[in-house]
Design a protein around this nucleic acid. Structure first.
Lengths: 209, 209
DNA sequence: TGACTTCTGGCACACTGTGACAGAAAGGTG
DNA sequence: CACCTTTCTGTCACAGTGTGCCAGAAGTCA
């Protein structure tokens, strides 16, 4: 008997198999033209079971998002409370970058395939951004707590979070033609530097109106 | 025979009837629990016809978005070419606000109902943000043209557009408890002022790297 | 081994969204 | 008015997504 049970290992294996099968099929024959039945077929699992691993077809493509969101929230919480919030969020982004650099070759490959998909189907970028809006809400709560205000009373809280998420998106999405991990990582660093240079010092520590 | 034919007037009437029926049903019995069949039933139209007016259920909720996007693009194009791009985009936002103030009571009511819906179903905010991502792409092309660069080569172009869209979202969404048009309008102005005060002068006119 | 929990497959089902075609309605012409 | 053309509408059929339900298989633990 191992540290994690056979059941859990099997589940994780199935989850990744479904994800990989889906990514390959999407790139081969298109996102819309690929059905759940096909994906499940490759992994030799019933379509019904697919929905027990991923809540929807779109959810497949947002797989990396869940992970990144947790990382960002954790890193923000771990930063000193007197640090300007935008600075903390940029540290969160750097933590995501570090995590990507330390990931397995399999995960890297999945990430690069996802980028290809986003490039090919702009509709999926929309899905990703929509998911980002949920993350913004959670981040806004954390930032508001640090600023000592109720999030819905303070536009600056939302502006800080929105600008940070914008920076993240620019880093990941622009430009999309980069195809290797080091290139992408350096683009994200560039975006962070660009954002920091564009904002007025102390803008994110002003008291609520 | 009038300026616009009977056919077109009828179409517009049906479109608005479907929209109004949908908004009321969504608020009454929930977004998910409302079916296309019900919406079409209220207007006494076949479900098949519904899809000839709106491409999907979500499209109903993005109705105002299409209008706002055109307005923003037009206003940007109309601004002097030597004006800093972010300034032009903020003028675009003000044009949207002016348009809202000049709209009919019916349109105002629709807009306020939509806000209630967004407040109740965060999922719809995601849809709206996703649509905003498409707008960003179009705006980025316009901004890049003015900056004299290819959009995919210039992160700053995307950052300008993303920050502008963030400002718009903050203005519209935060805080959501406001219930009258003048209150909302003043919130958007507030968001614009906040964004402008947060950014370093000249940040959006730096040459591409 | 046996009891317990969790996962899986199969079935039925409601709903969204699309293609195809026939008929109704509007617009234009003599 | 009759006629033809164009556009809109309803009906039917269908593929695909996503969910509730239940019986049985498989992993877990004593």
């Amino acid at each position: 008997m191992s540290a994690v049970g056979l059941r859990e290992r099997k589940k994780e294996k199935t989850r990744l198999a479904l994800l990989d099968a889906a990514l390959d099929l999407f790139l081969e024959q298109g996102y819309e033209s690929t059905t759940i039945e096909q994906i499940a077929g490759v992994v030799e699992v019933s379509p019904r079971t697919f929905f027990r691993y991923f809540t929807s077809k779109d959810h497949l493509v947002l797989w990396f998002h869940d992970h990144g969101e947790e990382l960002l929230l954790e890193e923000f919480a771990a930063r000193p409370a007197d640090e300007p919030p935008f600075t903390s969020l940029m540290h969160g982004l750097r933590a995501m970058v570090d995590d990507m650099q330390g990931s397995t070759p399999e995960d890297t490959e999945r990430f690069l395939k996802l980028r290809q998909l986003f490039d090919k189907y702009p509709h999926l970028v929309g899905q990703s951004v929509a998911r980002g809006a949920m993350t913004e809400t959670r981040l806004a709560e954390a930032v508001a707590a640090r600023r000592g205000v109720a999030p819905e009373d303070d536009q600056l809280t939302y502006l800080i979070v929105a600008f940070a998420m914008s920076t993240m998106r620019i880093g990941f999405e622009c430009p999309r033609r980069e195809t290797t991990m080091p290139e992408i990582v350096s683009r994200i660093s560039e975006a962070i530097a660009l954002a920091e240079a564009s904002l007025r010092p102390g803008w994110d520590t002003r008291p609520a109106a």
